[in-house]
């Protein structure tokens, strides 16, 4: 149906560079998650696409048509806000019918479309409720329906479920995914929850300081993070700075073979890819037993803390001296991958 092209978009607020030469192509029907820490420019980017901020430079095209000069009401985008932003002086039906009335649709059609979309978000029969008489999850569903009923070419969601509890968030996330699949609507979803991004997205864009750090499929972002930042941001990761000399990486008493040129390097090891044997590289600080597995914190002599996941928490105890045996590693230098096991 519709594709979105963002090319070299920047946004500078007086002194802050909120978005820095950002480029991204979103294919028709694709769901892309923007993931990044607070202040990384996710909302600013989304608001530029929706028309609420004007880019300092760059171009935004929907189906190859430049939209940068269009005000929000002229753009084929639909935005769902974190604070749902429902109009509290109208009931649910009026909230959903507002945009259709502006488009001068006939009464019968409005009624039909509103009811259909209420059905879609699982709120059949809620039309006459005031928005303040709904639960947080229901309000967020109405907000989603309000955008969907206008059949936007691009759906923009800015942390729509951030204010809801974990359980409800997971349920709504699945519903959004279902609806998005059914309607095949091109969607940009902002979140700073990595599990949300991993569960939802066709592709994940990891952002940092307004720039793209990595764009990839969820499993790739997890397995092959392009930079130490992505490695540290998605899931738990041991990031160890050290030096390589003669094909060996070392940090304090810890060392591991690393076939790269001499120089500084950052080693990334997932806790589940680090096993322990009796030895003398580090001392166990704590063992946490999760039943299905154990998580061990190991301190190197210089104070570096390293995490290891072991299958049997009873096998080790605090105070024990151990050696670290990585089974899969990645190494980075100058913010780029220089080595990866496999």
């Amino acid at each position: 149906m519709s594709k979105l092209t963002i090319a070299d978009v920047s946004k500078i607020f007086s002194t802050t560079v909120a978005v820095d030469t950002f480029s991204l192509d979103v294919a028709d029907g694709e769901l892309v998650c923007l993931l990044g820490p607070s202040g990384s420019g996710k909302s600013t980017l989304l608001r530029m696409i929706g028309g609420f901020e004007t880019p300092s430079s760059g171009s935004i095209r929907i189906d190859d048509e430049e939209v940068i000069h269009l005000p929000p009401e002229k753009r084929p985008t639909g935005m769902v806000f974190q604070s749902h932003a429902l109009w509290t002086h109208m009931n649910v039906f009026q909230n959903l019918a507002f945009g259709l009335k502006l488009r001068r649709r006939p009464k019968a059609e409005i009624k039909e479309r509103v009811e259909a979309v209420l059905d879609l978000v699982g709120l059949k029969g809620y039309g006459s409720r005031m928005t303040t008489q709904l639960s947080g999850g229901q309000q967020q569903r109405v907000a989603l329906a309000r955008s969907l009923v206008l059949e936007p070419k691009i759906l923009l969601l800015d942390e729509p479920f951030a204010s809801l509890d974990q359980h409800l968030r997971e349920r709504l996330r699945e519903e959004v995914r279902d609806i998005q699949q059914r309607l095949k609507i091109t969607t940009l979803f902002v979140t700073h929850g990595q599990d949300e991004a991993l569960a939802l997205a066709d592709r994940i864009v990891v952002m940092r300081d307004g720039r793209v750090e990595q764009v990839a499929r969820p499993d790739m972002v997890y397995r092959e993070p392009a930079t130490p930042f992505v490695a540290g941001f998605i899931g738990t990761m041991n990031l160890i700075d050290g030096t390589v000399a003669n094909g060996t990486f070392s940090r304090a008493s810890f060392s591991v073979p690393l076939p790269v040129a001499d120089g500084p390097a950052t080693l990334a090891i997932r806790p589940e890819a680090l096993s322990l044997t009796a030895g003398g590289q580090g001392i166990i600080h704590r063992v946490t037993d999760y039943g299905t597995h154990g998580l061990v914190d190991i301190d190197l002599p210089d104070g570096t803390r390293i995490k290891s996941m072991i299958s049997d928490a009873k096998a080790f105890a605090a105070g024990q001296s151990v050696d670290l045996k990585p089974t899969a590693i990645s190494a980075y230098r100058d913010n780029a991958v220089i080595y990866r096991t496999r």
Partner: peptide, 24 residues
């Protein structure tokens, strides 16, 4: 955000004032 949501739904600035801001 309420005003922006109305812009998003297709209302011009004046319409937003009449239909959203003023009633609120």
């Amino acid at each position: 955000r309420m005003e922006e949501a109305a812009r998003d739904a297709g209302a011009g600035p004046l319409r937003v004032f009449w239909s959203i801001t003023l009633p609120q």
